[in-house]
Amino acid sequence: MHQPSRRSALVGLGLGAASVFSGAASASAAPKPRPGKTTTPSPAPAPAHPLRFGLTNLGGPLASRELDSAASLAGEKPVLIQFFKDFQQAPPVSELDAVVARGATPILTWEPWAAGAGVSQPAYSLAAIAAGAHDGYLRSWGSALASWGKPVMLRFAHEMNGDWYPWSEAVNGNSSGDYVLAWRHVHDVLVAQGATNVRWLWAINAGGPVDIAGLYPGSGYVDVLGIDGYNWGTVGSSWGSTWTPAIGVFGRWLDALRALAPGKEIVVTETACTELGGSKADWIRDAVAYLDAQPDVTGLVWFNLNKETDWRFNSSSSAATAFTTALSARE
């Protein structure tokens, strides 16, 4: 979760969206071909309606009381639960089990870095990943996910079109085409371990400065498209943020995803709204209705944290009421 124009402030502090969890060249150039056998994942299921409600919470899947409280406030249980792990952490089998025990599908955001250590991390350059520097670690994850065996959406190296993570082609010594090579390599290593239960979720930022066209690994390597987008309101008045309706946050980026990968299912993998600069209750009602009207958008994951601002859907009583009403109004 980042706003591009805030990059210097956040990176200077060593902050990334996942830092609260992990203790918990132009990209338009054609990607370099990668030799070797590729695999074709199972077709994505038909988009489900109503729009699925998902949640990212502070404590993650093991924070049962927190998730129960959010479900009670929302008027329904989230059926998508997202959490974050970096390349320092073991396969989170207990957390995956906790998600499934709640009747939900896990979205596991897997970040190739030491979380919070800044964008200059040569050990985690895209070229190093593609060259096999982390293959032992990748194989351990692939084997664990294969043994676990249940469906999981794996959101690897998200917001790659920004410049605030070391897997961006704009930083860390990376070059155009490197992201696709790294993604395909990670995909193939996990598949070789039998992790065919993984659905690969490729998620952009609605505002990143790098062209997404050269970052797409190809339909044989991606099952689900994702997008992260926020209404920052006047939180970042120093860098020019303004109150932005949902169509302004997502519209052109959804069109770009559809043009890049026609027919793919789309999940809004992170979204939220501040209270500063307008009516959060109105924004929530409009955003849920807008996304529910998109036939290929099958999920909305709310970033339910008090971080740069109070993003939680229950940051005020009016926002909480609007959220519950908006969910119940889905068609």
Rank of each mutant, 00 (worst) to 15 (best):
E159M: 04
A182S: 14
L154Y: 13
Y230M: 00
D211K: 01
V171Q: 11
W232V: 06
G162Q: 08
P217Y: 10
D223P: 02
L138P: 01
V186K: 07
P166Y: 10
Q193D: 08
H134T: 13
N172I: 02
A133P: 11
S143R: 15
H185Q: 03
R155N: 13
I247F: 13
S140E: 13
W200Y: 09
G233I: 01
W164S: 11
G240A: 13
P245V: 03
R139I: 09
D178I: 09
W253R: 15
L138N: 05
A131T: 05
P166F: 14
G226M: 07
A128W: 04
W243I: 11
M153W: 15
S147Y: 09
I247L: 12
A133Y: 06
D178C: 12
I227M: 11
G207P: 05
S219I: 05
Y221E: 03
S175R: 15
N161T: 11
W148E: 02
W232P: 02
P166E: 05
R139G: 04
A246P: 11
L154Q: 08
L154C: 05
V189C: 01
H187W: 14
A182D: 01
A133C: 10
S237G: 10
G218M: 11
K150R: 15
I129R: 01
W202T: 00
N197R: 08
L201N: 06
V235R: 10
R184A: 11
A123F: 02
S241W: 07
I212Q: 12
E169C: 07
W200I: 01
Y216E: 02
V180G: 05
A170S: 12
Y124C: 09
G240V: 03
P166Q: 11
V224K: 12
G226E: 01
D188H: 01
N172S: 10
E159H: 05
A182G: 12
A130W: 07
H185T: 06
S241K: 05
P245W: 05
V249P: 00
I129D: 00
W253D: 14
V191L: 12
V249G: 03
G177Q: 10
L201T: 09
S238P: 00
P209N: 09
R139S: 06
N205P: 11
A131M: 02
P209F: 01
A192C: 00
N174F: 12
A144M: 09
G208A: 03
T244F: 04
A192N: 08
G240P: 02
R252H: 09
G207V: 12
T234S: 15
R184V: 13
A195S: 04
F250P: 04
V186G: 01
H158Y: 10
S147Q: 15
V189R: 06
G208T: 07
W167E: 00
G251F: 07
R139E: 14
D255S: 13
D163Y: 02
V189W: 01
T196M: 10
P151C: 14
G162W: 06
W253Y: 15
L138G: 06
V171S: 15
A203R: 14
W200R: 11
L154F: 13
W232C: 01
D228V: 11
V224Y: 10
G220S: 14
G226D: 00
G142W: 05
